[in-house]
Design a protein around this nucleic acid. Structure first.
Lengths: 251, 251
DNA sequence: CGAGCCGTTGAGGGGATTCAAGCTCAGTGG
DNA sequence: CCACTGAGCTTGAATCCCCTCAACGGCTCG
C-alpha cells in the first residue's frame, strides 16, 4: 500500500484522536460526524492520516487490509478487471466519501482503489468499529448511509455513463468531475473551473470506449470552447458551455 | 404498489412473527437469520408476505415507502430513467436478496423495482429496525453485509455487462440469469436449465443495445444450441455450451 | 538527443443502429 | 371458423458511429 503516513498535529497526546477528529475540517461531511468527544476518546486504535500521490494505489482487490478510509481531499477511482481481462473503472469517490467499507465486515476489498489526484485520507482500522461499539446507534446508521450512498453512485454510474453516444458519455463525465471538484473546493468560481481530467485511456476505461474516441471527443470539445487543457490531466471547463452542450446531447 | 398480501400461516397469534420467521425456508439466507426467537418476538410491526405477478411494480423511485423487502422467490429488476429519458436496468435481485434498504434510513427509494417473474416477498417496515434496536449488534452487521452485497452487485453489473461486444454481454447475462435460477431452485438439473429470459427490449435496457441486436444474438445462440425458448420469456439453456461459448467470447 | 509516454489525427473496416418488412401467436369479434 | 388485430420477435438492407491500425507531434526525462 506504500503510503507515507504523515501524522496529524497533536498525535501522541493521551487522547489524541478526539482532538484530531474534532478539529478536522472534513468531519462534518465524514462518517465520524455523529460521534461526540466522549466516543472519540474511547478509540484506542490510532487513526492515521496518510497522503498519496496521484496514481498510487490505496488498496487492492482481494487484500484483507483491515481498514476503511475517509477521503479528506482528492479523487479516488475504483477499478475492476473483467472476466476477459479488461480494466474497467466502476466508480469515483471524492472529498468526504467513505471507501473500503467492506473491510469493516472482515471482507477483502472488492475493487482496486487508486488515487486519481494527490489524495489525503483518514485510515480507520476495522477494530474501531468494535471500539465505538454498536451502542452508538447513530453511528451504525451513519455507516449505512455511507453504504447506500456508494450503492447509489454505482447504479447511477452505470445508468448515466454506461450508455449512449460517446460524446454524451464524455459530457456527463465532465459534469461529474466538475461537481467533484466544486465540492472539494467550495469555491464558486465564475464560469471557469479547474478540474482533474483523466488521461484518455482512463476515460476509455470509465466510459467503455477507446482512447482514440475519447481523444477525438475531448479535442472536439476543446474546439468548441467547452474545455481547455492547462496541464497534464487538468483542464479548465466552461460550466456554461458544458451544460449547454449536455442539454443539446440529452435531446 | 398494489399487491395482494397473502398472510402467512399463523399470522394473528400473540407473537406470530417469531413463529413465522423461524419457520421460513429462506430465513437462513435472509437478513433476519441472525435474530433469535426472543428478538423476533419483540417485533410489533407486522411483516406481510406479499406476492406479485410478473411485471408488477414493487416500489417506485421517489416513493417514501417506509419498508424494505426480502425476496423469497422470483427475480426483481432495478430500473432507472437516465437524464435523457432512457430506461436502464442497473441490477437484478433474486432469492434471499434484500431490497429497498434505503427506506430503513428514511430515504425515498432510489430505483423502480419491478418483478421480472412472479415474486414472493417479505415486507419489512422501517420501524422494525428501531424495534430490533441496535442493541443487536449482529443485526447491524448483517444489514451492512446486505448493503455491501448490493454494492458489489452493482459494480459487477456495470463492469461485466456494460462493456464489450454484444454477443459477450448477452452470454454474461445468460450466465447470471442461470445462476439466479439455480440458487432459486437448488436443483442440480443435468445440463438443461429453465431460466427466465428477458424480453428483447428488456435485454436492450440491461445491456445497452437495441432490441434488434439482442434478438439477433439470441437467435444466433438458439441456432448454436446454447438456448431454446420454451415459453414467452422462458428458455432452456444448455449450461455446457453456454460456458463454452462464454469462454470463447472472453478471449 | 533519443526514448518513451501521452495525445492527436487520418483512413479504412466492422459491428451496431436505424428503418423497414414480415413472422408467430394469442385474443377478439364478425 | 377465420379474418383482424396487436404485441413480441425475427430478419434484411443501408447507414453510421466507433474501433482498429497507423503515423505523427509535443513533452519529459534519463
Amino acid at each position: 500500500m506504500l503510503m507515507k503516513t504523515s501524522p496529524l498535529h497533536l498525535q501522541g497526546t493521551p487522547h489524541p484522536q478526539a482532538e484530531v477528529c474534532l478539529g478536522c475540517e472534513v468531519r462534518r461531511h465524514a462518517v465520524f460526524k455523529v460521534l461526540d468527544e466522549h466516543a472519540l476518546e474511547r478509540l484506542h486504535a490510532p487513526i492515521a492520516a496518510p497522503s498519496l500521490a496521484a496514481e498510487e494505489r490505496i488498496y487492492a482487490r482481494g487484500q484483507a487490509g483491515g481498514a476503511a478510509f475517509t477521503v479528506r481531499s482528492g479523487i479516488v477511482r475504483f477499478e475492476r478487471v473483467t472476466a476477459s481481462g479488461e480494466r474497467r473503472i466502476v466508480r469515483l469517490a471524492g472529498r468526504g466519501d467513505f471507501i473500503g467499507q467492506e473491510s469493516l465486515l472482515g471482507q477483502q476489498y472488492r475493487d482496486d482503489a487508486v488515487a486519481c489526484t494527490a489524495v489525503a485520507l483518514c485510515r480507520i482500522p476495522a477494530q474501531v468499529l468494535d471500539e465505538i461499539g454498536h451502542a452508538q446507534a447513530r453511528f451504525s446508521r451513519e455507516l449505512m448511509q455511507r453504504w447506500q450512498h456508494a450503492l447509489d453512485d454505482a447504479e447511477g454510474w452505470s445508468a448515466e455513463l454506461g450508455a449512449g453516444p460517446a460524446r454524451r458519455r464524455v459530457l456527463r463525465l465532465l459534469k461529474l468531475l466538475q461537481q467533484l471538484q466544486r465540492q472539494a473546493e467550495d469555491e464558486a468560481t465564475g464560469s471557469a473551473l479547474r478540474i482533474w481530467l483523466p488521461r484518455r485511456d482512463q476515460m476509455g476505461d470509465m466510459l467503455d470506449m477507446t482512447m482514440e474516441t475519447a481523444s477525438r471527443v475531448v479535442s472536439q470539445l476543446r474546439r468548441e470552447g467547452v474545455l481547455r487543457p492547462v496541464a497534464p490531466q487538468h483542464a479548465l471547463v466552461d460550466r456554461q458551455r458544458l451544460l449547454q452542450a449536455l442539454q443539446a446531447a440529452e435531446a
